[in-house]
Protein backbone atom coordinates (compact mmCIF):
# COMPACT_ATOMS: atom_id res chain seq x y z
CA UNK A 1 0.00 0.00 0.00
CA UNK A 2 1.27 3.42 -0.91
CA UNK A 3 1.86 5.90 1.87
CA UNK A 4 1.34 9.48 0.66
CA UNK A 5 2.10 12.46 2.82
CA UNK A 6 1.46 15.83 1.22
CA UNK A 7 2.39 19.17 2.76
CA UNK A 8 1.69 18.10 6.28
CA UNK A 9 2.32 20.60 9.08
CA UNK A 10 1.81 20.61 12.84
CA UNK A 11 1.83 23.54 15.23
CA UNK A 12 1.49 23.60 19.01
CA UNK A 13 0.60 27.21 19.85
CA UNK A 14 3.61 29.27 18.73
CA UNK A 15 5.81 26.24 18.21
CA UNK A 16 5.97 24.70 14.77
CA UNK A 17 6.67 21.03 15.43
CA UNK A 18 6.68 20.16 11.73
CA UNK A 19 7.07 22.45 8.71
CA UNK A 20 5.40 21.38 5.44
CA UNK A 21 6.57 17.82 4.80
CA UNK A 22 5.82 15.52 1.90
CA UNK A 23 6.82 11.98 1.01
CA UNK A 24 5.56 9.05 -1.04
CA UNK A 25 6.57 5.52 -0.39
CA UNK A 26 5.52 2.02 -1.32
CA UNK A 27 7.24 -1.22 -0.47
CA UNK A 28 10.43 0.35 0.85
CA UNK A 29 12.14 1.06 4.14
CA UNK A 30 12.26 4.77 4.95
CA UNK A 31 14.38 6.17 7.73
CA UNK A 32 13.46 9.27 9.68
CA UNK A 33 16.36 10.76 11.56
CA UNK A 34 17.04 13.94 13.47
CA UNK A 35 18.12 15.24 16.84
CA UNK A 36 15.79 15.17 19.84
CA UNK A 37 12.77 17.39 19.24
CA UNK A 38 13.24 17.37 15.45
CA UNK A 39 9.63 16.28 14.86
CA UNK A 40 10.16 12.59 14.05
CA UNK A 41 7.73 11.19 16.60
CA UNK A 42 5.16 13.88 15.76
CA UNK A 43 5.27 12.85 12.10
CA UNK A 44 5.03 9.16 12.94
CA UNK A 45 2.06 9.76 15.24
CA UNK A 46 0.35 11.72 12.47
CA UNK A 47 0.82 8.83 10.05
CA UNK A 48 -0.85 6.49 12.55
CA UNK A 49 -3.66 8.97 13.18
CA UNK A 50 -2.85 9.52 16.85
CA UNK A 51 -2.62 13.24 16.21
CA UNK A 52 -4.07 15.08 13.26
CA UNK A 53 -2.04 17.41 11.05
CA UNK A 54 -2.78 21.12 11.13
CA UNK A 55 -2.62 21.25 7.33
CA UNK A 56 -1.98 18.73 4.56
CA UNK A 57 -3.10 15.19 3.98
CA UNK A 58 -1.89 11.71 4.85
CA UNK A 59 -3.26 8.73 2.98
CA UNK A 60 -2.61 5.02 2.92
CA UNK A 61 -3.63 3.80 -0.51
CA UNK A 62 -6.98 5.51 -1.10
CA UNK A 63 -7.72 5.82 2.60
CA UNK A 64 -7.44 9.23 4.26
CA UNK A 65 -5.99 8.84 7.73
CA UNK A 66 -8.11 11.68 9.12
CA UNK A 67 -11.38 10.60 7.53
CA UNK A 68 -11.12 6.83 8.04
CA UNK A 69 -8.81 6.34 11.02
CA UNK A 70 -10.29 2.99 12.03
CA UNK A 71 -9.93 1.43 8.59
CA UNK A 72 -6.42 2.80 8.15
CA UNK A 73 -5.30 1.43 11.51
CA UNK A 74 -6.22 -2.08 10.37
CA UNK A 75 -3.30 -1.87 7.94
CA UNK A 76 -0.80 -0.28 10.32
CA UNK A 77 1.49 -1.77 12.92
CA UNK A 78 2.85 0.90 15.26
CA UNK A 79 5.62 0.75 17.80
CA UNK A 80 5.67 3.92 19.93
CA UNK A 81 8.89 5.36 21.30
CA UNK A 82 7.99 4.46 24.89
CA UNK A 83 5.41 1.69 24.74
CA UNK A 84 3.25 1.43 27.85
CA UNK A 85 1.88 -2.07 28.26
CA UNK A 86 -0.61 -3.13 30.91
CA UNK A 87 1.59 -4.49 33.72
CA UNK A 88 -1.06 -6.93 34.88
CA UNK A 89 -1.51 -8.74 31.56
CA UNK A 90 0.63 -11.58 30.28
CA UNK A 91 2.40 -11.30 26.87
CA UNK A 92 0.04 -13.86 25.41
CA UNK A 93 -3.07 -12.04 26.66
CA UNK A 94 -1.83 -8.71 25.36
CA UNK A 95 -1.10 -10.15 21.91
CA UNK A 96 -4.50 -11.86 21.82
CA UNK A 97 -6.10 -8.55 22.73
CA UNK A 98 -4.34 -6.77 19.84
CA UNK A 99 -5.12 -9.62 17.45
CA UNK A 100 -8.81 -9.69 18.34
CA UNK A 101 -9.19 -5.95 17.87
CA UNK A 102 -7.40 -6.16 14.53
CA UNK A 103 -9.84 -8.95 13.61
CA UNK A 104 -7.10 -11.51 12.96
CA UNK A 105 -8.41 -15.05 12.51
CA UNK A 106 -6.44 -17.97 14.00
CA UNK A 107 -4.22 -15.62 15.94
CA UNK A 108 -2.94 -18.40 18.21
CA UNK A 109 -0.36 -19.70 15.73
CA UNK A 110 0.88 -16.24 14.86
CA UNK A 111 1.21 -15.26 18.53
CA UNK A 112 3.16 -18.45 19.25
CA UNK A 113 5.36 -17.66 16.25
CA UNK A 114 6.25 -14.14 17.39
CA UNK A 115 6.83 -15.26 20.97
CA UNK A 116 9.17 -17.94 19.64
CA UNK A 117 11.01 -15.50 17.37
CA UNK A 118 11.65 -13.12 20.28
CA UNK A 119 12.58 -15.95 22.65
CA UNK A 120 9.65 -15.29 24.96
CA UNK A 121 7.70 -18.55 24.67
CA UNK A 122 8.54 -19.48 28.24
CA UNK A 123 7.40 -16.10 29.49
CA UNK A 124 4.04 -16.18 27.76
CA UNK A 125 2.15 -16.58 31.04
CA UNK A 126 4.32 -14.26 33.14
CA UNK A 127 3.00 -10.82 34.00
CA UNK A 128 4.44 -8.01 31.87
CA UNK A 129 5.27 -6.30 35.14
CA UNK A 130 7.80 -9.04 35.87
CA UNK A 131 9.60 -8.75 32.53
CA UNK A 132 12.67 -6.65 31.84
CA UNK A 133 12.55 -3.47 29.75
CA UNK A 134 13.99 -5.27 26.73
CA UNK A 135 11.45 -8.09 26.99
CA UNK A 136 8.59 -5.61 27.18
CA UNK A 137 9.98 -3.86 24.14
CA UNK A 138 9.99 -7.17 22.27
CA UNK A 139 6.33 -7.69 23.16
CA UNK A 140 5.52 -4.19 21.93
CA UNK A 141 7.32 -4.96 18.65
CA UNK A 142 5.42 -8.25 18.36
CA UNK A 143 2.13 -6.40 18.86
CA UNK A 144 3.08 -4.06 16.00
CA UNK A 145 4.02 -6.98 13.74
CA UNK A 146 0.98 -9.09 14.46
CA UNK A 147 -1.33 -9.49 11.48
CA UNK A 148 1.56 -8.63 9.13
CA UNK A 149 0.37 -5.06 8.45
CA UNK A 150 1.01 -3.34 5.12
CA UNK A 151 2.56 -0.32 6.84
CA UNK A 152 4.95 -0.62 9.78
CA UNK A 153 5.72 2.49 11.81
CA UNK A 154 8.60 1.91 14.19
CA UNK A 155 9.64 4.72 16.51
CA UNK A 156 13.11 3.94 17.91
CA UNK A 157 12.71 0.17 17.52
CA UNK A 158 16.27 -0.68 18.59
CA UNK A 159 16.26 1.22 21.90
CA UNK A 160 16.79 -1.05 24.88
CA UNK A 161 17.31 -4.22 22.87
CA UNK A 162 20.29 -6.55 23.22
CA UNK A 163 22.61 -6.95 20.23
CA UNK A 164 21.23 -10.34 19.19
CA UNK A 165 17.65 -9.04 19.22
CA UNK A 166 18.67 -5.93 17.26
CA UNK A 167 20.08 -8.23 14.61
CA UNK A 168 17.00 -10.45 14.50
CA UNK A 169 14.74 -7.38 14.39
CA UNK A 170 16.76 -6.10 11.40
CA UNK A 171 16.13 -9.40 9.68
CA UNK A 172 12.41 -9.24 10.48
CA UNK A 173 12.23 -5.71 9.04
CA UNK A 174 14.00 -6.83 5.86
CA UNK A 175 11.69 -9.82 5.58
CA UNK A 176 8.60 -7.64 5.94
CA UNK A 177 10.04 -5.39 3.23
CA UNK A 178 10.56 -8.43 0.98
CA UNK A 179 6.88 -9.34 1.56
CA UNK A 180 5.90 -5.93 0.19
CA UNK A 181 5.28 -3.93 3.37
CA UNK A 182 6.14 -0.25 3.62
CA UNK A 183 8.25 0.53 6.66
CA UNK A 184 8.95 3.90 8.24
CA UNK A 185 11.37 3.86 11.14
CA UNK A 186 13.17 6.41 13.24
CA UNK A 187 16.38 5.71 15.10
CA UNK A 188 19.49 7.30 16.50
CA UNK A 189 21.55 4.24 15.55
CA UNK A 190 23.04 5.34 12.26
CA UNK A 191 24.55 1.92 11.52
CA UNK A 192 21.07 0.41 11.26
CA UNK A 193 19.69 3.36 9.31
CA UNK A 194 22.55 2.99 6.83
CA UNK A 195 22.13 -0.77 6.58
CA UNK A 196 18.35 -1.04 6.40
CA UNK A 197 16.91 2.08 4.82
CA UNK A 198 16.46 2.65 1.13
CA UNK A 199 15.55 6.28 1.64
CA UNK A 200 16.42 8.56 4.51
CA UNK A 201 14.79 11.83 5.59
CA UNK A 202 16.82 14.08 7.87
CA UNK A 203 14.80 16.47 10.01
CA UNK A 204 16.00 19.43 11.98
CA UNK A 205 13.71 21.52 14.17
CA UNK A 206 10.69 20.31 12.23
CA UNK A 207 12.19 20.96 8.80
CA UNK A 208 13.37 18.50 6.20
CA UNK A 209 17.05 19.29 5.58
CA UNK A 210 18.04 16.35 3.39
CA UNK A 211 16.51 13.36 1.64
CA UNK A 212 17.91 10.51 -0.42
CA UNK A 213 19.43 7.07 -0.34
CA UNK A 214 22.10 6.59 2.33
CA UNK A 215 24.70 6.27 -0.41
CA UNK A 216 23.61 9.49 -2.17
CA UNK A 217 23.56 11.40 1.14
CA UNK A 218 27.08 10.18 1.97
CA UNK A 219 28.29 11.29 -1.43
CA UNK A 220 26.66 14.72 -1.03
CA UNK A 221 28.24 15.15 2.38
CA UNK A 222 31.55 13.73 1.16
CA UNK A 223 31.70 11.36 4.11
CA UNK A 224 32.34 7.64 4.42
CA UNK A 225 30.30 6.97 7.55
CA UNK A 226 26.60 7.68 7.89
CA UNK A 227 27.17 8.97 11.40
CA UNK A 228 29.38 11.78 10.01
CA UNK A 229 26.90 12.35 7.19
CA UNK A 230 24.12 12.97 9.69
CA UNK A 231 26.28 15.40 11.68
CA UNK A 232 27.24 17.15 8.44
CA UNK A 233 23.63 17.79 7.40
CA UNK A 234 22.41 18.82 10.82
CA UNK A 235 25.35 21.24 11.19
CA UNK A 236 25.31 22.58 7.63
CA UNK A 237 21.67 23.52 7.85
CA UNK A 238 22.35 25.68 10.91
Amino acid sequence: MRLSISNVTKRYGDLTALHPFSMDSEGEICGLIGNNGAGKSTLLKMIVGLIFPGKGKIALGDLDVKKMPETVKRHIGYLPESPLLYPRLTPEELLFYVAEIKGIQKAKDEIAYWLEIFGLSEKRNALLNDLSFGMKKKIAIASALIGRPALLILDEPFNGLDVATMESLSEIILKRRADGATIVLSSHLMTYIDRLCERVFILKEGQLVAEGTPKALKTRANQTSFHETFLYFTKVSS
Binding site: L50, E70, V72, K73, P80, P83, L84, L85, I101, K102
Partner: peptide
Protein backbone atom coordinates in the same frame (compact mmCIF):
# COMPACT_ATOMS: atom_id res chain seq x y z
CA UNK B 1 -5.37 6.63 30.81
CA UNK B 2 -1.57 6.32 30.37
CA UNK B 3 -2.06 3.05 28.48
CA UNK B 4 -4.71 4.36 26.09
CA UNK B 5 -2.02 5.30 23.53
CA UNK B 6 -1.98 1.61 22.65
CA UNK B 7 -5.75 1.52 22.09
CA UNK B 8 -5.54 4.70 20.04
CA UNK B 9 -3.14 3.00 17.61
CA UNK B 10 -5.53 0.07 17.12
CA UNK B 11 -8.54 -0.03 14.79
CA UNK B 12 -10.98 0.67 17.59
CA UNK B 13 -14.06 2.91 17.42
Amino acid sequence: RPFRMMDAALPLA
